[in-house]
């Protein structure tokens, strides 16, 4: 696969009632890299992520993933192309157990229809067993064993964040979108997250796009960075270069 054939968003624009949230934003992500999107509050980082996963409908632009334009798909179809995501303010199923939440991550892989589910025999039974096997792998990966059968409402915030990450991993995506994965986490949890991000890239071979405020995490774990401000791209490059870029410094610190 050619270098920029993996993921490329070009000319994305969207406005909400006259306010231009994104204007002609482009984003290139190479296969196998961790790509951070940074920028001050209101720069349009989450909006860009929402446009990619189709929660928002971009006014114009194109998003190519593995050579196919995904900007016309519905949110649930984007998932079956191999793009998983997490949310800024945790969108878990609050009245379900950790296990059931993660099992839902397998939903896009289901091979049975509603009728064979009603009979729950043969293939449906086997599939359920396979789903659980995959979920257990991820539970081991993220150390969630202790919370397996707890209701989401009853587990701490940091664990909820991990469950959401786990739920995305269960999908076995090729591209993972993380929206502020470290927000609300303490030092230790952020440290774990940094390790996991590396493991996800190196061991699971998943490409990651993450929106992040914690610059240390960005410096340590990300391969490339795109900086946004006022809905436009300020700079793209390696973390070390981007933080030195005068425009980026100005955006963060003012004149």
């Amino acid at each position: 696969m050619s270098d920029n054939g993996f993921f490329r968003a070009a000319g994305i624009s969207i406005q909400f009632g006259g306010i231009k949230a994104l204007e002609n934003v482009s984003l290139d992500v190479k296969q196998g890299e961790v790509h951070a999107i940074i920028g001050p509050n209101g720069a349009g980082k989450t909006t860009l992520l929402n446009c990619i996963s189709r929660q928002y409908k971009a006014d114009s632009g194109q998003v190519f993933f593995q050579g196919k334009n995904i900007l016309k798909l519905k949110p649930h179809q984007v998932v079956s192309r191999g793009i998983a995501r997490t949310f800024q303010n945790i969108e878990l199923f609050k009245n379900m157990t950790v296990m059931d939440n993660m099992l839902l991550g397998r939903h896009s892989q289901r091979a049975t229809g509603i009728f064979s589910d009603i009979l729950f025999y043969g293939k449906a039974r086997q599939q359920e067993s396979d789903f659980r096997l995959k979920v257990e792998e991820v539970i081991d990966f993220l150390d969630l064993q202790a919370y397996r059968n707890r209701i989401i409402n009853d587990v701490p915030y940091g664990v909820q964040k991990n469950v959401e990450l786990g739920r995305a991993l269960v999908m076995e995506p090729r591209l993972l979108l993380l929206d502020e994965p470290s927000s609300g986490l303490n030092m230790e949890e952020t440290q774990d997250l940094a390790f996991w991000i590396e493991d996800i890239r190196d061991d699971l071979g998943i490409t990651i796009i993450l929106v992040e405020h914690d610059m240390r995490l960005v410096m340590d774990s990300c391969d490339r960075v795109t900086a946004l401000d006022y809905g436009g791209v300020l700079a793209v490059g390696e973390p070390k270069e981007v933080v030195k870029n005068p425009d980026v410094v100005k955006a963060y610190l003012g004149e």
Partner: peptide
């Protein structure tokens, strides 16, 4: 059940 708890999350799990 996913639809009941959060339509947005359900969609992002691939639930139509």
């Amino acid at each position: 059940i996913a639809i009941r708890d959060s339509e947005i999350a359900a969609e992002s799990m691939g639930v139509s």
